[in-house]
Amino acid sequence: MMNFSEHLCFKTYAASRYIIGLYKPFLDEISLTYPQYLVMVVLWENGSMNISKIGEFLHLDNGTLTPLLKRMEKNGLLTRVRSSADERKILVSLTEEGTALKEKASHIPEAVQNCIGISSTKNAQLLSVLDELLSIQTTK
């Protein structure tokens, strides 16, 4: 049997918790949780989109996203509007406040990368392996 420390599930879980923890002080400065930050990054990069498309980017279902988006709307960061063409679809858009937050958050990726302290080569390798793993998930 494999040792506990050799289990992929443990290593990925522990690494994920570590990295998310590194984001916390930076996100506290701009009053965002980590999941909210991920939503904001998707919207900053892609503009308005429906909830299911956001879910595709973040690998989250509508049941997880809806309460998160409601809180973000209540905090004035985004709006949710039902499509007139298809009432089942809800278009999510950034407010002025949400758009302005992009500048305040622009330093976060580099700051977290500096905290991790691995070389850009190792970072690229890690991203490549994770992309490969995620692509397997989306094809099943």
Rank of each mutant, 00 (worst) to 15 (best):
M1Y: 05
M1L: 11
M2T: 06
F4N: 08
T12R: 08
A14S: 09
S16C: 10
S16K: 11
R17G: 01
R17H: 01
Y18F: 15
K24V: 15
P25I: 09
F26R: 02
E29S: 07
E29Y: 02
I30H: 03
I30F: 03
T33E: 15
P35F: 12
Q36S: 12
V42P: 11
V42I: 11
L43P: 05
N46R: 14
G47R: 07
S48Y: 00
N50Q: 14
S52W: 06
K53T: 13
I54L: 04
G55I: 00
G55H: 00
E56T: 04
L58W: 04
G63D: 13
T64W: 12
L65N: 02
L68S: 01
K70I: 12
E73R: 10
K74R: 14
K74T: 13
N75Y: 06
L77Q: 06
L78F: 00
L78W: 00
R82N: 14
D86N: 14
R88G: 07
T95Q: 03
T95D: 04
E96H: 10
T99A: 15
A100G: 06
A100N: 14
A105S: 10
S106N: 04
S106K: 06
A111I: 00
V112G: 01
Q113H: 11
I116E: 01
L126N: 07
E132K: 14
S135M: 10
Q137N: 07
Q137L: 10
T138C: 08
T138V: 12
T139L: 10
